[in-house]
């Protein structure tokens, strides 16, 4: 299928050069047996109608990594995730995932490739039951994979046992923490390679956040699931992340390992109140 033409924006002149040099690097990398990143974002810009929100965003998530994306309210974190998962069109730049150029693919296709997005505010189908929500998460699985879907459901229930108890309840009737569990479980049902989670801890009690994080930790370790975690609680995020990016006003201003950023002066004054 032919991807739609990118919307013309000023400043696109360099992209052809880029793609040529990228192919070269890709070839070199494969020669040297370097793993290319699972998710590669290069010079990405996007926004809403005429308002640009993201400027020249470049980042990577490698297989098996937990990467955090932190930044103040309105910095553009949710906009970035929406552009990655195809809900918003990219204006300029490239997004590659698992070897596919997904820059101009639709959300419906991207999730099939193994990139699953748990949006901010859970966005559950509130008048459907927990189990119906989870099964919609497996919508990409074709008919005939009933067995695989059942097994996936079992795994999600094992990982998040609260969901099994609540399986027949309407998703809208759950507590905030349970809703977040349901949203994450739903995101896992498509059997993703990379899970994007937007504001995991927002509005949840610390105990609930701990439970969720250790559940994620378990699949992260055991299944090698890669994670891109958006968090307003910078401390929580940086403690757990292999690497992290700091985003301000739509620009990536800092990147580094989680522990390095925890020590960073700028991070400490701006986000940790130190």
């Amino acid at each position: 299928m032919q991807p739609p033409e990118p919307r013309s924006r000023p400043g696109t002149a360099s992209t052809h050069m880029d793609s040529a040099s990228r192919q070269l690097t890709a070839a070199l990398n494969s020669d040297q047996k370097h793993e290319t990143a699972l998710l590669e974002v290069e010079h990405l810009e996007s926004g809403y109608d005429e308002t640009r929100v993201l400027w020249d965003i470049s980042l990577e998530v490698h297989r098996g990594e937990l990467v955090a994306l932190v930044g103040a309210n309105g910095a553009g974190k949710s906009t970035l995730l929406a552009t990655l998962s195809g809900l918003l069109p990219a204006w300029i730049g490239h997004v590659r995932f698992a070897g596919y150029d997904i820059t101009h693919r639709r959300a419906e296709e991207i999730v099939r490739l193994g990139l699953s997005h748990v949006p901010q505010g859970r966005r559950l189908f509130s008048a459907l039951t927990v189990e119906e929500n989870l099964l919609l998460g497996a919508y990409t699985r074709r008919a005939g994979s009933q067995q695989a879907i059942k097994q996936e459901l079992e795994e999600v229930y094992t990982l998040l046992p609260k969901l099994r108890e609540r399986r027949r309840q309407l998703a809208g009737s759950l507590s905030g923490g349970e809703q977040q569990m349901c949203a994450i479980g739903r995101g896992l049902m498509s059997h993703p390679e990379l899970l994007l989670i937007d504001e995991l801890s927002l509005g949840l009690a610390p105990q609930v956040v701990d439970d969720l994080l250790s559940a994620l930790d378990a699949i992260h370790r055991e299944k090698g699931l890669s994670l891109l975690l958006v968090e307003q609680d910078v401390q929580i995020a940086l403690e757990r992340a292999d690497r992290a990016y700091v985003i301000e006003n739509g620009h990536i201003v800092l990147e580094g390992t989680g522990s390095a950023l925890l020590q960073n002066e700028r991070v400490r004054t701006a986000y940790l109140g130190a």
């Binding site: 809900l87 959300a107 419906e108 296709e109 699953s116 949006p119 966005r123 559950l124 919508y139 498509s190």
Partner: peptide, 11 residues
Amino acid sequence: MDRDAARLMGI
């Protein structure tokens, strides 16, 4: 119920 969430499910 939620058009964008549905798209994220691959619908």
